[in-house]
Write a protein that binds this DNA or RNA. Structure first.
Lengths: 114, 114
DNA sequence: CAGATATTTCGATAATAATCGAAATATAGC
DNA sequence: GCTATATTTCGATTATTATCGAAATATCTG
């Protein structure tokens, strides 16, 4: 992941609505959520939400797919992991640094899946 | 870590110079670097750098200490870990999700140290 | 095709951020 | 106290971002 892409990803996340939106998708899992459902969950007008979705999408943090009239958005876990990895790269001049396991990872069957 | 603090941290990192600056400090380790040394390393005017240092400091991502005439800045590894943890909280509706080990963690003696 | 639903694009406005030189503050040494 | 070094604060300018209603686009159903 290049520095420029990382800045775009961080900029995308550095906004209250988008951070909440991204976390909502992270927690929703690979199935994702329709734009309308997100707008309702966050209490944001559709046009505003669309702007924020575009930011996250442009940053490569979320994926979009169509299902009938609805557009379904889902978190891109691979991009998130790459982002975290970049921040920690070559970290800690040999000292401290906690592991920070991302999640329970019950199955771990697939890594870039769905 | 609260949502508002996370947004501040992400905003602080979502800027080319500050991202480079933070990574410089992350890689420099707990000893940190003097403001002047950072300015030279990044090729940024002192007043501009001061602005960026203030942003990172205000976001709680870096610590400041004085050594004679110099102000030494160092990365706050605890804050970084908390930030990453927040992003992954409750992630992956039970599916995927790669571990993303932050660093080699040779010793692993302390977790929130220095 | 007409009408309904889901979402995006457009356009205008308001707020926030980045930039850097010049002047101000803090510490050190004589 | 004076002079030099290290860094920050101030102020003015420019650029980017967030906001949301209204209109446009896409898909579905009959």
């Amino acid at each position: 992941m290049e520095s420029e892409a990382v800045v775009r990803a961080l900029s995308a996340l550095a906004q209250e609505h988008r951070l909440a939106l991204f976390r909502l998708l992270v927690q929703a899992g690979p199935d994702g959520l329709a734009a309308g459902a997100i707008a309702e969950a966050l209490g944001v007008p559709a046009s505003s939400l669309s702007f924020h979705l575009a930011q996250l999408n442009n940053a490569g943090l979320i994926a979009q797919r169509r299902d009938g009239r609805s557009l379904i958005y889902s978190a891109d876990y691979g991009a998130m992991t790459a982002l975290l990895g970049f921040l920690m790269e070559n970290c800690c001049g040999g000292a401290v640094c906690a592991p920070a396991a991302p999640c329970d990872t019950k199955d771990k069957k697939e890594r870039t899946a769905a």
